[in-house]
């Protein structure tokens, strides 16, 4: 069953064509990465899928709330971490006591225990992104839309977060579309990689990543993994010349 269908989509951003005629499908429960150089319209495409930008063409997306995580995470600086995480629950009408309980239960798993009363500006870069990711998961959405979720996280924490996300996918059956320019990250996490051209964004190639789940740190050292990374890299570099 298809969770998302994108067919011949064009997105205009501030009057300019940012994405031109992109099509792909995302089966339920899979993880799709959109990869391409900076300025190729990846973010515009993601926003169009989220229904936040007008577009031409056809997009099928699940009904109900969508977990959208913008590039910088953007927690609300005037609320504590706890309140920030409660907001997606409160907006959906879950009462405060229950929302608080759910958030407090999840904090340790994200390494945020003890920081619930901190304001976002007091968190480290890694913690901030983890919190933003947790807030996205707390939307209980079937579909997560992540815009470079680990861009601001250091290499060590980034891998931890890959593993965490991979783990969460085994527990909760959500589908994901992630925008990234980190090829290793895309290969590690994805079932499908959509490579986008420079500007305006056009579809270059769709690559299936059929490495077995659950993926672990060992996956990264396998030959299959490296050859996939190389293949995707080649496609991107080829396009830049």
């Amino acid at each position: 069953m298809q969770e998302v269908i994108v067919n011949g989509v064009k997105v205009y951003y501030e009057g300019f064509l940012a994405v031109n005629n992109v099509s792909f499908t995302l089966p339920k429960g899979s993880y799709l990465s959109i990869i391409g150089p900076s300025g190729c319209g990846k973010t515009s495409l993601l926003k169009a899928i989220a229904g936040l930008l007008p577009y031409e063409g056809y997009i099928l997306r699940p009904e109900g709330p969508l977990g959208y995580m913008p590039q910088k995470g953007v927690l609300l600086p005037w609320y504590t971490l706890l309140k920030n995480l409660e907001i997606p629950l409160l907006i959906r009408g879950i009462n405060e006591i229950e929302a608080r309980k759910r958030v407090l239960d999840l904090l340790p798993k994200f390494g945020l225990k003890g920081f619930e009363n901190h304001f976002p500006n007091a968190l480290s870069g890694g913690m901030y992104q983890r919190a933003a990711l947790l807030r996205t998961l707390l939307t209980d959405s079937e579909l997560l839309l992540l815009d470079e979720p680990f861009g601001a996280v250091d290499a060590l924490n980034r891998r931890k977060l890959w593993l965490y996300l991979e783990n969460m996918r085994q527990k909760f059956n959500f589908s994901t579309i992630m925008v990234t320019h980190d090829v290793e990250e895309a290969v590690f996490l994805s079932d499908i990689i959509v490579i986008i051209h420079k500007y305006p964004g056009e579809l270059k190639e769709i690559v299936q990543i059929d490495l077995p789940h659950p993926r672990t740190l060992q996956t990264i050292s396998t030959d299959e993994f490296s050859s996939k990374v190389e293949y995707v890299l080649e496609k991107i570099i080829e396009e830049n010349n």
Partner: peptide, 10 residues
């Protein structure tokens, strides 16, 4: 972006 996050969850 802050508004977009909330818009996405309707």
């Amino acid at each position: 972006d802050m508004i977009d996050v909330l818009k996405a969850i309707s």
